[in-house]
Amino acid sequence: MIEVKEAGKHFEDKWILRRITFDMSRGESMVLIGPSGSGKSVLLKIIAGLITPDEGYVKLGSSNIGMLFQQNALFNSLSVIENLLFPLGERLGLYGTEARHQCAALLEAVGLLESADLYPDEISGGMQKRLGIARALIVKPEIILYDEPTAGLDPITSRLIADLILGLRKKEGSTIITVTNDINRAYQLADRIALIARNTMYIGGTPDDVRQSRDPALKQFIYGLKDGPLNQPGHLT
C-alpha cells in the first residue's frame, strides 16, 4: 500500500532525512518514534504529498489519504458537525441528508454526537483530538496519517484515543502511520515501530521486538538515556 524508496529532504543546505526506505502492506500500522526535530513529521508530510522529497520517491496504493495534524487544524468558525460536513462536500461532493447522516454516525463512533452543534473552542482538548480524527476519517481514507494524536493529553484519555484509532482501523481496514513520542502509545498502536534519528530510519520491529531489543540507539531513546549512539556523529546502522 505504501512504498518509500531512498527518500530524502533538505531545507536549504541541511539534510533532514536521507535514504528512507520501507514498504507497508494494506491494513498495517506503523509507528514512527524519534527525537524532537528528527524529521518524523516531515516524513509524514512527504507521504501525504504536502512536501516533495528532494531525492527518492513515494508510491501509494491509494490517493485517498486522511491526516490528523498535531494541532488538529480544526475550523474554529464551524461547529463540530460542520467540520465533518466540509471535507465530505469538498472531497466527495456529498451534501444534504445523506452527508449529515454519515457525519452523525461517525460522531457517534467517536463519542461526540451530543456535542455536534458546539464549536471547537467549546469542547475539551481530548474532544478536539477526537474531532480531528473523525475529520481525517470522514472521507473513508485508505491511508491515515496521525501526527502526535495524543500529545498534551493525560494518559487515560490517550489510551482511549489509541483504542479509538485501533477500533476504526479494524472496521475500515485502513493502513496507518502514527508519529508519537509516547512510547506506551507506540506499543499500543504499532504492528511495527521505526526509529527516525540522525536523518535516517531504523526499523525496530514489533512492539515485543522493541521491548526486548538490545540495540543501543533504541534503548537510549526508549529509556531516555543521556548518553548513547544518538548523541554521536555518523549514521546509525
Partner: peptide, 14 residues
C-alpha cells in the same frame, strides 16, 4: 506548566 508534554523521552529526562 506541563514542562515535558510532547517531548521525546531523552529531552523529557533532561
Amino acid at each position: 506548566d506541563e514542562p515535558t508534554t510532547g517531548l521525546d523521552p531523552i529531552t523529557t529526562n533532561a
